[in-house]
Design a protein around this nucleic acid. Structure first.
Lengths: 184, 184
DNA sequence: CAGCTTACTGGACACTGTACAGTACGTCCA
DNA sequence: TGGACGTACTGTACAGTGTCCAGTAAGCTG
């Protein structure tokens, strides 16, 4: 099992990420520690630090990774439907991965590759509605904030409301926001 | 300093909370541990467990406590202005206590005494606008979610947007939501 | 083949929340 | 007044956490 010092396990950043994904899938966020990831890879905990700056960076990657499961709306989609669609898909995705939800807002909605791609696709659709630049950014933020926020409510433990009802609430909220943003 | 076992320090739940508030004010959330609170009280860490179920309960109390600093809007206030006012005051409060923001959403916006009082006052104002029951609850949730969400963005570390701009965004968002909720 | 860089190791530090068992104080009842 | 009892503490300990440091050996480069 353990190597003698100096011997290489052939780790890569990707391998670490994959292991982290596995551990997270099996044991959730509380079970995700540097040590548990290292154990998954049959490697000493500190070995990970050759490939990942620290745990935060690892989690950041994990968060953005998850967003890769979402299809950005097509640029020629009907804008309102496209925007509602991504946000609801995002909500559904977040609800499945409850542990991660609080982290998204704490890190301003993730700043990785996939997050940027989704934001860009949304901006394109907003452009078709006549919203550009700052105005578009504002709307994206408003939509994203509500979506993550409702997901947080839906995944909070305690006497929460039914996720289905919160999803319905979110739909209404998104409509209000889009209506407000687009009324001339 | 340390007592011999059996001797009483005269702790109360309130004393523990006060100490927790002090520690939190001085060292922030990362500095808030059972041990640091106990040190503040010159007491062994486990002594706290005679007065508080666990750290989560302590933090819950702290969160709701903070909301006590907010004045609920008067029942006869102009509804729209009153609602916007509380939410913006909430935003300002949360931004000052950045560490706590992620916790609020994770616990569905706090479920303590003060949180309920604010919610009730908001519901009254919404009643004046013709919104009752489920409809009012939905609007309260939408407003709260956006407010905490924007506060989370404003307090996230990293290349965030300026808090002042986010506050302005929040104002616009609140207007959209209230407009959507009240348009017949 | 020498030298350097790099990926790993063991061990350690300074913490964390919390459980367990023991002790002495304050209170209440006989 | 005396004895029992509940309870508020204590010390000690467990099982973890993220991360740093020093050392070692393998692989690449000249």
């Amino acid at each position: 099992m353990p190597r003698t010092p100096g011997q290489r396990a052939g780790l890569t950043r990707d391998a670490v990420l994959t292991a982290a994904r596995t551990v997270f899938a099996e044991r959730g966020l509380p079970g995700l520690s540097m040590r548990s990831v290292a154990r998954e890879l049959d490697v000493a905990p500190n070995a990970l630090y050759s490939h990942v700056a620290d745990k935060d960076a690892l989690v950041d990657d994990l968060l953005d990774d998850l967003l890769g499961a979402l299809d950005p709306p097509a640029p020629d989609a009907e804008p309102l439907a496209g925007l509602r669609g991504v946000m609801l898909a995002t909500f559904d995705l977040l609800v499945v991965h409850a542990d991660l939800v609080p982290l998204y807002l704490a890190r301003q909605g993730a700043r990785g590759e996939n997050a940027r791609a989704l934001g860009a696709a949304m901006t394109v659709l907003l452009g078709h509605l006549g919203l550009d630049g700052d105005a578009a950014g504002r709307v994206v933020r408003a939509l994203v904030v509500s979506t993550i926020g409702y997901a947080a409510l839906a995944t909070a433990d305690g006497p929460a409301l039914a996720p289905a009802q919160l999803r319905a609430d979110l739909e209404v909220t998104l409509d209000w926001l889009l209506l407000g943003a687009t009324r001339s």
